[in-house]
Design a protein around this nucleic acid. Sequence first.
DNA 1: CTGAAAGCGCTTACAG
DNA 2: CTGAAAGCGCTTACAG
Lengths: 347, 347
Amino acid sequence: MPTLTKQEAPTLRDVAAAAGVTIATASRSLTGAYGVHPETRKRVMETATLLNYKPNRSARALVTGHSNVIGLVVSDVRNPYFAEVARGAEDAAYAAGFDLLLCNSDLYADRQMRYINSLLEKRVEGIIMNSVANLSRKDQTFIVDSGVPVVLLYQSAGGTPFSTVSADSERGGELAAEYLLAHGHRHMMYLAGSRQHANLSKRAQGFLQVVRRFGHKAEAGVMYGTHTLAGGYEIARSLFRKLGNTTAIATANDVIAFGVIKAAIELGVNIPRDVSLIGFDDVELASIVHPPLTTIRQSKYEIGGAAVDILLRLAAGKDRSPEHRVLGVELVERASVGAPPSGRGKR
Amino acid sequence: MPTLTKQEAPTLRDVAAAAGVTIATASRSLTGAYGVHPETRKRVMETATLLNYKPNRSARALVTGHSNVIGLVVSDVRNPYFAEVARGAEDAAYAAGFDLLLCNSDLYADRQMRYINSLLEKRVEGIIMNSVANLSRKDQTFIVDSGVPVVLLYQSAGGTPFSTVSADSERGGELAAEYLLAHGHRHMMYLAGSRQHANLSKRAQGFLQVVRRFGHKAEAGVMYGTHTLAGGYEIARSLFRKLGNTTAIATANDVIAFGVIKAAIELGVNIPRDVSLIGFDDVELASIVHPPLTTIRQSKYEIGGAAVDILLRLAAGKDRSPEHRVLGVELVERASVGAPPSGRGKR
DNA sequence: CTGAAAGCGCTTACAG
DNA sequence: CTGAAAGCGCTTACAG
């Protein structure tokens, strides 16, 4: 096989010389600025493709001040929720000619900050971050002061300097509780995931509020952990050992519910016969899990797209005031919720 | 010119001025080049943090010629396989101080090429691409000629100018066939996904070879489609309508198998009682699906990491000769494969 | 419509 | 150890 001779990549100067113009005219021809004679432009374009010219984006970014890059900082793309968000964001970015930098933080503050710094050095046009809750006050201020548009993926706690996009978490939690109560459940357990996670907390809040409003005949406990399959699995294993009178489990996201299902299969617990289960997210796989998971659907892909939308608007204009969007949720009825078993759940 | 107001991001010049040195010394202090007096360096570093200075990566990239960015072009991050690969790649990149640009091509040639061009303009240090099979000869040559290190995520067809990293697809296919045959299956169907996809084809090849070697008493058909949940679902729906004597289904990846499961649940087909199913990948969710999916495990996360490894080596040295890595596979036994039903599968 | 020139913010030989 | 200067590859006022 012939080894390629690594010739230097042609620059604008090469194109200009070959086309018999100055680099100014070459630049104008290539960037589509008007005020160039059509024939000149045509000639430049042709020699550019002939020479296989590719503009150096670093050089362009340096002079224009625009990187056309957006940073996406999520906990972990392997979480199907974030994969959906990432795809939605990437499609929106692609459509606008922007690139997306993927960062997985595992929600570690130091890793998040290292990413933030790196993105800032890259002069990204904006940053999408799932959460900022585990950062210190100082780190948060640092980000605000940097001036980059930031959109967070949870509901605004009010008065945030960051934009936010999220599903209506509280309403989702309410929906889950109402559904469980309607099926006769009175003793429920809420697997809330991380305490610090704003969305998850809101979901728990919505859930607990409805249960509380129901009166003294219903009750719901809360268990915290990590919002992963492994986290749900761990908690479910201990929960199943002393189920007591709880007849239904609600989880802060589908992945936690998947962990519950895994534990149930292993321990021979039948869902929904022995215990009912309702998730949150409606991840694609929720429908093929056993049993198909009843859950609260949120529009993950659209959330990613909306986040990019906001960022593009913020990056384009001089108005940097934050925007907040809340997308609706709906209950998706499948097969993981049934009536409480007759033996348990009654005092 | 008056001094800059505080809104403008401070530049090296600002830091240098504040520290009482030239930008050359400031630069050397910040980049850690040796030959700077410790006290001078200390002073520069302090004023840099004081001014909240962040080096402009575009400027640095322009002069050094190093972007420290790697491009990852996959079909779709929502495919759990790619999510795993992406995470493995991102972790490796992060550890090396590189950033990862995420691109979803849906395997469309034009979208792939637009990404390639964009990455080339960004002067990425390397590109990880799941496949190049659907690109024209011309496009492939274009990529080779560009000189960027590229690693593909499938087994080398031999003599490729690109590096490759993948699991041992053929061996995986063999493993699946051997397992099914050992369980007494003689009439099998292979859901191969896309015809063009090298890995998937290799898997089918390995599978069919073993069946063929078994002799005239065993047979296997092949059905093509898209390698997605929806694709598996579609094919399975039609397959289940006229199952004939086929008693086992093998799929080219887990996601296709998930589609089969979904169709099975809907049509009341019981796996593995009515028909056995074996997947490929061992995606995290494979264990909690109903029934837990027997499948061939490949090390997805490690594949992503290995791809970055190769790229970093290629980017660092002058040796640009491609490298090929094949990672082992293993069968993970769960509950989706059983004996053939007594009624069918016998002539 | 096109050119000459300044400059974006850095790094790095080359001197001293 | 530090400075003066060139230059990376572009874009864009400013003239003509």
